[in-house]
Amino acid sequence: MRTIKLTLNGTSVSREIEDNRLLVEFLREDMKLTGTKESCGVGVCGACTVLLDGTPISACLALAVHADGRAVTTIEGIADGDRLHPLQESFLRHGGFQCGICTPGQILAAKALLDANPHPTRAEIQHWMMGNLCRCTGYYKIIESIAAAAGAE
């Protein structure tokens, strides 16, 4: 057991955890932030994408201790109160999701992209988003949602 301190969605958090706790377990079970999903468990599908100091990572492969001293952003942390993040708004408007299970990961990955590259080309969007699998949409509307959000900014 050890204590980790991190900034979680802008708020300081201090928690005692097992050494082998995965970040996805810490978020979903200890912090009850179930917007972060777990699916493939091997870092491929992207359902568990969260931002660590602004960088997208697989929470299913990250040790929770590695979040110690750092900032973690989950889907619960990107809206401004009741005001949705422009990407959330854009995914809604352009049908960038269907079943919704991959959506938190898609939106966080897209946020990291637009933070680093506010006006990506379509090819840059595809390359960056390649790691976030979606079985419902065929990706077209996800790419459209991100491109529209980038245009709106």
């Binding site: 870092g43 491929v44 992207g46 994408t49 660590l52 960088t55 997208p56 990572i57 697989s58 492969l61 990250a62 990955a109 990291a112 960056w128 390649m130 790691g131 976030n132």
Partner: peptide, 8 residues
């Protein structure tokens, strides 16, 4: 791989 793996 993907941007997440590259980032970790």
């Amino acid at each position: 791989a993907t941007v997440r793996v590259r980032s970790m």
